[in-house]
Design a protein around this nucleic acid. Structure first.
Ligand SMILES: [Mn+2]
Ligand SMILES: [Mn+2]
Ligand SMILES: [Zn+2]
Ligand SMILES: [Zn+2]
Lengths: 145, 145
DNA sequence: CAATAAGATAGGAATAATTCCTAACTAGGA
DNA sequence: TCCTAGTTAGGAATTATTCCTATCTTATTG
Protein backbone atom coordinates (compact mmCIF):
# COMPACT_ATOMS: atom_id res chain seq x y z
CA UNK A 1 0.00 0.00 0.00
CA UNK A 2 1.12 3.55 -0.71
CA UNK A 3 2.66 5.30 2.27
CA UNK A 4 0.27 7.91 3.59
CA UNK A 5 2.91 10.60 3.36
CA UNK A 6 2.29 10.91 -0.38
CA UNK A 7 -1.46 11.11 -0.03
CA UNK A 8 -1.12 13.59 2.79
CA UNK A 9 1.26 15.68 0.74
CA UNK A 10 -1.05 15.72 -2.24
CA UNK A 11 -3.96 16.69 -0.06
CA UNK A 12 -1.93 19.44 1.53
CA UNK A 13 -1.01 20.98 -1.81
CA UNK A 14 -4.62 20.83 -2.96
CA UNK A 15 -4.58 18.02 -5.47
CA UNK A 16 -7.73 15.99 -5.86
CA UNK A 17 -7.36 12.36 -4.95
CA UNK A 18 -9.11 10.44 -7.66
CA UNK A 19 -8.88 6.64 -7.88
CA UNK A 20 -6.88 6.98 -11.10
CA UNK A 21 -4.32 9.16 -9.40
CA UNK A 22 -4.04 6.86 -6.45
CA UNK A 23 -3.49 3.92 -8.72
CA UNK A 24 -0.81 5.75 -10.69
CA UNK A 25 0.88 6.57 -7.42
CA UNK A 26 0.60 2.92 -6.41
CA UNK A 27 2.28 1.80 -9.62
CA UNK A 28 5.13 4.24 -9.10
CA UNK A 29 5.49 3.10 -5.55
CA UNK A 30 5.68 -0.55 -6.51
CA UNK A 31 8.26 0.33 -9.10
CA UNK A 32 10.36 2.13 -6.51
CA UNK A 33 10.11 -0.93 -4.27
CA UNK A 34 11.13 -3.22 -7.08
CA UNK A 35 14.53 -1.66 -7.59
CA UNK A 36 13.88 1.87 -8.75
CA UNK A 37 13.86 1.30 -12.49
CA UNK A 38 12.00 4.37 -13.81
CA UNK A 39 8.87 3.82 -15.95
CA UNK A 40 7.49 5.52 -19.00
CA UNK A 41 3.91 6.70 -19.39
CA UNK A 42 2.95 3.77 -21.58
CA UNK A 43 4.02 1.25 -18.95
CA UNK A 44 2.25 3.17 -16.23
CA UNK A 45 -0.90 3.10 -18.30
CA UNK A 46 -0.70 -0.65 -18.80
CA UNK A 47 -0.28 -1.28 -15.11
CA UNK A 48 -3.06 1.10 -14.14
CA UNK A 49 -5.43 -0.49 -16.64
CA UNK A 50 -5.10 -3.81 -14.89
CA UNK A 51 -7.30 -2.30 -12.25
CA UNK A 52 -8.96 0.58 -14.12
CA UNK A 53 -9.32 -0.59 -17.72
CA UNK A 54 -10.58 2.72 -19.06
CA UNK A 55 -7.73 4.97 -18.02
CA UNK A 56 -6.50 7.13 -20.88
CA UNK A 57 -2.90 7.77 -21.71
CA UNK A 58 -3.59 11.45 -21.49
CA UNK A 59 -4.70 11.08 -17.90
CA UNK A 60 -1.48 9.28 -17.13
CA UNK A 61 0.55 12.06 -18.69
CA UNK A 62 -1.42 14.75 -16.96
CA UNK A 63 -1.14 13.03 -13.63
CA UNK A 64 2.57 12.46 -13.97
CA UNK A 65 2.96 16.13 -14.84
CA UNK A 66 0.90 17.14 -11.83
CA UNK A 67 2.87 14.88 -9.52
CA UNK A 68 6.09 16.26 -10.94
CA UNK A 69 4.96 19.82 -10.35
CA UNK A 70 4.01 18.89 -6.81
CA UNK A 71 7.41 17.41 -6.18
CA UNK A 72 6.55 13.79 -5.59
CA UNK A 73 7.62 12.54 -8.99
CA UNK A 74 10.82 12.96 -10.91
CA UNK A 75 10.58 13.28 -14.67
CA UNK A 76 13.68 12.00 -16.40
CA UNK A 77 14.52 12.87 -19.96
CA UNK A 78 17.05 10.61 -21.60
CA UNK A 79 18.99 11.24 -24.75
CA UNK A 80 17.13 8.62 -26.76
CA UNK A 81 14.12 10.93 -26.38
CA UNK A 82 12.44 8.71 -23.84
CA UNK A 83 10.83 10.16 -20.77
CA UNK A 84 10.62 8.08 -17.65
CA UNK A 85 9.26 8.72 -14.23
CA UNK A 86 10.14 7.74 -10.71
CA UNK A 87 8.69 8.42 -7.30
CA UNK A 88 10.64 10.94 -5.29
CA UNK A 89 11.83 9.40 -2.07
CA UNK A 90 11.59 11.80 0.84
CA UNK A 91 14.83 13.72 1.30
CA UNK A 92 16.65 11.75 -1.35
CA UNK A 93 18.41 13.01 -4.45
CA UNK A 94 20.31 10.96 -6.98
CA UNK A 95 21.31 10.66 -10.62
CA UNK A 96 21.54 7.88 -13.18
CA UNK A 97 23.75 5.64 -15.21
CA UNK A 98 21.97 4.53 -18.39
CA UNK A 99 22.77 1.79 -20.86
CA UNK A 100 22.75 3.13 -24.41
CA UNK A 101 21.67 -0.22 -25.78
CA UNK A 102 19.10 -1.76 -23.45
CA UNK A 103 18.12 1.31 -21.49
CA UNK A 104 18.80 -0.23 -18.12
CA UNK A 105 19.15 2.38 -15.40
CA UNK A 106 21.27 2.34 -12.27
CA UNK A 107 21.26 4.99 -9.63
CA UNK A 108 24.31 6.91 -8.55
CA UNK A 109 24.38 8.76 -5.29
CA UNK A 110 26.75 11.53 -6.32
CA UNK A 111 25.53 14.93 -7.40
CA UNK A 112 27.62 17.82 -8.71
CA UNK A 113 26.38 20.17 -6.02
CA UNK A 114 29.66 22.03 -5.84
CA UNK A 115 29.38 23.01 -9.48
CA UNK A 116 25.79 24.03 -9.11
CA UNK A 117 26.74 26.19 -6.17
CA UNK A 118 29.53 27.80 -8.15
CA UNK A 119 27.22 28.48 -11.08
CA UNK A 120 24.62 29.95 -8.77
CA UNK A 121 27.25 32.34 -7.44
CA UNK A 122 28.74 33.29 -10.79
CA UNK A 123 25.47 33.61 -12.74
CA UNK A 124 23.41 35.58 -10.26
CA UNK A 125 21.07 36.83 -12.98
CA UNK A 126 19.99 33.25 -13.68
CA UNK A 127 17.54 31.66 -11.27
CA UNK A 128 18.46 28.01 -11.00
CA UNK A 129 15.53 25.65 -10.55
CA UNK A 130 16.79 22.16 -11.29
CA UNK A 131 19.46 20.14 -13.00
CA UNK A 132 19.98 16.88 -14.79
CA UNK A 133 23.08 14.75 -14.75
CA UNK A 134 23.21 11.43 -16.52
CA UNK A 135 26.04 9.13 -17.44
CA UNK A 136 25.63 6.95 -20.53
CA UNK A 137 27.45 3.81 -21.53
CA UNK A 138 27.02 0.06 -21.81
CA UNK A 139 26.00 -2.26 -19.03
CA UNK A 140 27.68 -5.61 -18.37
CA UNK A 141 25.24 -7.45 -20.65
CA UNK A 142 25.50 -4.99 -23.53
CA UNK A 143 29.18 -4.07 -23.64
CA UNK A 144 31.06 -5.80 -26.41
CA UNK A 145 34.74 -5.66 -25.55
CA UNK B 1 34.58 29.54 -44.40
CA UNK B 2 34.71 26.29 -42.52
CA UNK B 3 38.10 25.55 -41.00
CA UNK B 4 39.79 22.77 -42.94
CA UNK B 5 40.29 20.71 -39.81
CA UNK B 6 36.67 19.56 -39.93
CA UNK B 7 36.79 18.62 -43.58
CA UNK B 8 40.09 16.86 -43.07
CA UNK B 9 38.70 14.98 -40.11
CA UNK B 10 35.61 13.86 -42.02
CA UNK B 11 37.77 12.71 -44.90
CA UNK B 12 40.03 10.82 -42.54
CA UNK B 13 37.15 8.92 -40.96
CA UNK B 14 35.72 8.04 -44.36
CA UNK B 15 32.67 10.27 -44.61
CA UNK B 16 31.63 11.43 -48.05
CA UNK B 17 31.80 15.15 -48.51
CA UNK B 18 28.61 16.09 -50.28
CA UNK B 19 27.65 19.72 -50.81
CA UNK B 20 24.73 19.25 -48.43
CA UNK B 21 27.02 18.08 -45.70
CA UNK B 22 29.45 20.88 -46.22
CA UNK B 23 26.68 23.40 -46.03
CA UNK B 24 25.32 21.88 -42.83
CA UNK B 25 28.79 22.08 -41.39
CA UNK B 26 29.01 25.68 -42.52
CA UNK B 27 25.75 26.53 -40.76
CA UNK B 28 26.96 24.94 -37.55
CA UNK B 29 30.22 26.78 -37.84
CA UNK B 30 28.53 30.14 -38.27
CA UNK B 31 26.36 29.37 -35.29
CA UNK B 32 29.39 28.60 -33.18
CA UNK B 33 30.94 31.91 -34.28
CA UNK B 34 27.77 33.78 -33.43
CA UNK B 35 27.82 32.94 -29.75
CA UNK B 36 27.40 29.21 -29.53
CA UNK B 37 23.62 29.03 -29.24
CA UNK B 38 22.85 25.45 -30.29
CA UNK B 39 20.46 24.89 -33.22
CA UNK B 40 17.75 22.35 -33.87
CA UNK B 41 17.36 20.37 -37.08
CA UNK B 42 14.54 22.55 -38.36
CA UNK B 43 16.66 25.67 -38.11
CA UNK B 44 19.60 23.98 -39.74
CA UNK B 45 17.33 22.95 -42.60
CA UNK B 46 16.08 26.50 -43.10
CA UNK B 47 19.58 27.88 -43.24
CA UNK B 48 20.83 25.17 -45.56
CA UNK B 49 17.88 25.70 -47.90
CA UNK B 50 18.93 29.28 -48.45
CA UNK B 51 21.66 27.83 -50.60
CA UNK B 52 20.31 24.36 -51.41
CA UNK B 53 16.54 24.73 -51.58
CA UNK B 54 15.79 21.06 -51.99
CA UNK B 55 17.49 19.72 -48.90
CA UNK B 56 15.25 17.38 -46.94
CA UNK B 57 14.82 17.42 -43.21
CA UNK B 58 15.75 13.77 -43.16
CA UNK B 59 19.11 14.55 -44.71
CA UNK B 60 19.72 17.14 -42.05
CA UNK B 61 18.90 14.65 -39.30
CA UNK B 62 21.04 11.93 -40.88
CA UNK B 63 23.95 14.27 -41.36
CA UNK B 64 23.76 15.59 -37.82
CA UNK B 65 23.71 12.00 -36.59
CA UNK B 66 26.71 11.15 -38.74
CA UNK B 67 28.62 14.19 -37.55
CA UNK B 68 27.76 13.30 -33.98
CA UNK B 69 29.00 9.76 -34.43
CA UNK B 70 32.19 11.10 -35.94
CA UNK B 71 32.74 13.40 -33.01
CA UNK B 72 32.48 16.80 -34.63
CA UNK B 73 28.98 17.57 -33.46
CA UNK B 74 27.43 17.52 -30.05
CA UNK B 75 23.81 16.44 -29.80
CA UNK B 76 22.04 18.02 -26.86
CA UNK B 77 18.82 16.67 -25.47
CA UNK B 78 16.89 19.05 -23.28
CA UNK B 79 14.10 18.27 -20.93
CA UNK B 80 11.45 19.99 -23.02
CA UNK B 81 12.07 17.21 -25.54
CA UNK B 82 14.01 19.45 -27.88
CA UNK B 83 17.21 18.33 -29.49
CA UNK B 84 19.79 20.86 -30.47
CA UNK B 85 23.18 20.59 -32.04
CA UNK B 86 26.47 22.40 -31.78
CA UNK B 87 29.83 22.08 -33.44
CA UNK B 88 32.46 20.47 -31.25
CA UNK B 89 35.36 22.83 -30.76
CA UNK B 90 38.68 21.03 -30.84
CA UNK B 91 39.75 20.02 -27.35
CA UNK B 92 36.88 21.80 -25.67
CA UNK B 93 34.23 20.39 -23.37
CA UNK B 94 31.45 22.26 -21.65
CA UNK B 95 27.91 22.06 -20.33
CA UNK B 96 24.84 24.25 -20.37
CA UNK B 97 22.52 26.47 -18.45
CA UNK B 98 19.07 26.53 -20.04
CA UNK B 99 16.12 28.84 -19.53
CA UNK B 100 12.95 26.86 -18.90
CA UNK B 101 10.83 29.57 -20.46
CA UNK B 102 12.59 30.95 -23.53
CA UNK B 103 15.09 28.18 -24.09
CA UNK B 104 18.10 30.46 -24.10
CA UNK B 105 21.33 28.57 -23.55
CA UNK B 106 24.52 29.67 -21.83
CA UNK B 107 27.67 27.66 -21.61
CA UNK B 108 29.31 26.69 -18.38
CA UNK B 109 32.90 25.58 -18.30
CA UNK B 110 32.64 23.24 -15.33
CA UNK B 111 32.23 19.50 -15.74
CA UNK B 112 31.71 16.93 -12.97
CA UNK B 113 34.76 14.95 -14.05
CA UNK B 114 35.55 13.90 -10.51
CA UNK B 115 32.19 12.20 -10.17
CA UNK B 116 32.54 10.51 -13.53
CA UNK B 117 35.93 9.23 -12.50
CA UNK B 118 34.54 7.90 -9.25
CA UNK B 119 31.66 6.18 -11.03
CA UNK B 120 34.06 4.67 -13.53
CA UNK B 121 36.05 3.21 -10.64
CA UNK B 122 33.09 1.95 -8.65
CA UNK B 123 31.05 0.56 -11.55
CA UNK B 124 33.74 -1.27 -13.44
CA UNK B 125 31.20 -3.50 -15.19
CA UNK B 126 29.68 -0.45 -16.86
CA UNK B 127 31.53 1.01 -19.82
CA UNK B 128 31.06 4.77 -19.67
CA UNK B 129 30.79 6.48 -23.03
CA UNK B 130 29.40 9.92 -22.40
CA UNK B 131 27.50 12.12 -20.02
CA UNK B 132 25.10 15.00 -19.96
CA UNK B 133 24.88 17.70 -17.35
CA UNK B 134 22.45 20.56 -17.68
CA UNK B 135 21.23 23.18 -15.26
CA UNK B 136 17.74 24.58 -15.77
CA UNK B 137 16.20 27.77 -14.49
CA UNK B 138 15.10 31.21 -15.62
CA UNK B 139 17.25 33.77 -17.39
CA UNK B 140 17.29 37.45 -16.49
CA UNK B 141 14.50 38.25 -18.98
CA UNK B 142 12.25 35.40 -17.92
CA UNK B 143 12.58 35.28 -14.16
CA UNK B 144 9.67 36.80 -12.36
CA UNK B 145 10.76 37.65 -8.85
C1' DC C 1 -27.59 14.24 3.14
C1' DA C 2 -28.18 16.86 -1.26
C1' DA C 3 -26.63 20.59 -4.23
C1' DT C 4 -22.88 22.72 -6.39
C1' DA C 5 -18.77 23.99 -8.86
C1' DA C 6 -14.06 23.49 -9.73
C1' DG C 7 -11.37 20.31 -11.33
C1' DA C 8 -10.61 15.69 -13.60
C1' DT C 9 -11.63 12.10 -16.94
C1' DA C 10 -12.08 9.34 -21.52
C1' DG C 11 -11.27 8.98 -25.99
C1' DG C 12 -10.59 10.59 -30.25
C1' DA C 13 -8.25 14.10 -32.95
C1' DA C 14 -4.30 16.97 -33.63
C1' DT C 15 0.47 18.17 -33.47
C1' DA C 16 5.36 17.69 -33.52
C1' DA C 17 9.55 15.44 -33.89
C1' DT C 18 11.87 11.88 -35.83
C1' DT C 19 12.53 7.88 -38.68
C1' DC C 20 11.50 4.81 -42.56
C1' DC C 21 11.20 3.82 -47.46
C1' DT C 22 12.75 3.67 -52.14
C1' DA C 23 14.02 5.15 -56.60
C1' DA C 24 17.35 8.29 -58.36
C1' DC C 25 21.85 10.38 -57.84
C1' DT C 26 26.95 11.12 -56.98
C1' DA C 27 31.61 11.23 -54.57
C1' DG C 28 35.61 9.32 -54.85
C1' DG C 29 38.46 5.22 -55.60
C1' DA C 30 40.11 2.09 -59.40
C1' DT D 1 36.06 7.48 -67.35
C1' DC D 2 33.74 3.84 -64.92
C1' DC D 3 31.69 1.77 -61.07
C1' DT D 4 29.48 1.25 -56.83
C1' DA D 5 28.63 1.94 -52.09
C1' DG D 6 26.93 5.53 -49.88
C1' DT D 7 23.73 9.52 -50.08
C1' DT D 8 19.80 12.12 -51.38
C1' DA D 9 14.73 13.92 -51.89
C1' DG D 10 10.37 13.61 -50.67
C1' DG D 11 6.55 11.47 -49.11
C1' DA D 12 4.73 8.19 -45.87
C1' DA D 13 4.90 6.15 -41.42
C1' DT D 14 5.77 6.07 -36.62
C1' DT D 15 6.05 7.62 -31.96
C1' DA D 16 5.40 10.52 -28.21
C1' DT D 17 2.87 14.01 -26.44
C1' DT D 18 -0.75 17.38 -26.20
C1' DC D 19 -5.29 19.29 -27.33
C1' DC D 20 -10.31 19.22 -27.28
C1' DT D 21 -14.70 18.82 -25.13
C1' DA D 22 -18.67 16.59 -23.41
C1' DT D 23 -19.24 14.05 -19.39
C1' DC D 24 -18.11 12.82 -14.70
C1' DT D 25 -16.54 13.23 -9.74
C1' DT D 26 -14.34 15.06 -5.63
C1' DA D 27 -14.70 17.82 -1.94
C1' DT D 28 -16.93 21.60 -0.02
C1' DT D 29 -21.11 23.91 1.53
C1' DG D 30 -25.80 24.48 2.99
MN1 LIG E 1 16.27 6.82 -9.81
MN1 LIG F 1 27.55 24.79 -26.07
ZN1 LIG G 1 21.84 16.41 -8.44
ZN1 LIG H 1 31.31 17.08 -18.92
Amino acid sequence: MIPGEYLKHLKRVGVRLTPQRQEILQVLWERAQAGGQPVNAEEVMKRVRERYPGVSLDTVYRTLATFTRKGIVNELQFKDQSRRYELVIQGEHHHHLVCLRCGFVREIAYCPEDIIKRVRESHTDFKIEEHSFTIYGYCAECRED
